[in-house]
Design a protein around this nucleic acid. Structure first.
Lengths: 110, 110
DNA sequence: GTATCATATGAGCAAATGATCATATGATAA
DNA sequence: TTATCATATGATCATTTGCTCATATGATAC
């Protein structure tokens, strides 16, 4: 396969590309949204903060599965948590979550 | 593990949840953004439409790998394509792509 | 202290994913 | 037609992912 010439275009596009590091971080962020369970958790938290076992009950999944996913969401800074006695409540970290999900919804509902 | 009671909350949250079908579609969309290669392709197309082998050269990847990924992007309706002779040019399908990626960038740069 | 509830976490495993290789298809030129 | 370029696609394989199970940790009540 001999490639035809794109030298100029490639140069221009390459200049506009953010660092690999940034793009990796970006794709990791979207990967967090890229799972049904995690999307459901985030959507649930739109309404109200919730404890782990409530989310588990809502989604008909084990406490362990939910806890593992919440760990990912926390790492991505999409949710925060607060402890009240034995219970840990999770909540949306900021409004970017809503914005991103809303943009996604717009795209699929066309 | 006996669960404590969340009946009222669960009912309220459940009412606000979109159908599983919709949430699945939504997470599949974000999953497409959730890969470094695909994010790079989309970012490249911000600048200009490009043919497959130009993208491959830009990302230092094989034509085959890029072609497989473009298929996914096409399926998600994030890119479109047009043929000109032997060459196929890919371009961003609409502005949702830009909006979604911009929101993501905002989140990680805080 | 012990018992119990709520949550977190490590190991293991089946399923999904992303790249490569070989090959097929589509288009143009000679 | 044959040769070549550009792209698409199927098979394969190593890596990653998401769940389950068992167990650990943390907090409260007794």
């Amino acid at each position: 396969m001999k490639e035809h010439d794109h030298t100029q275009l490639l140069h221009d596009v390459d200049c506009q590309m953010p660092k690999d590091e940034v793009l990796a971080e970006l794709s990791e962020l979207f990967a967090v949204f890229g799972d049904t369970t995690r999307i459901k958790i985030l959507w649930a938290l739109f309404e109200s903060e919730m404890c782990v076992c409530a989310i588990a009950e809502l989604l008909h999944m084990t406490q362990s599965a939910i806890s593992h996913q919440l760990k990912l969401l926390r790492h991505a800074k999409l949710v925060g948590s607060r402890r009240d006695g034995k219970t840990v409540y999770y909540f949306l970290a900021d409004d970017h979550v809503r914005s991103i999900i809303n943009q996604g919804m717009e795209h699929i509902s066309e």
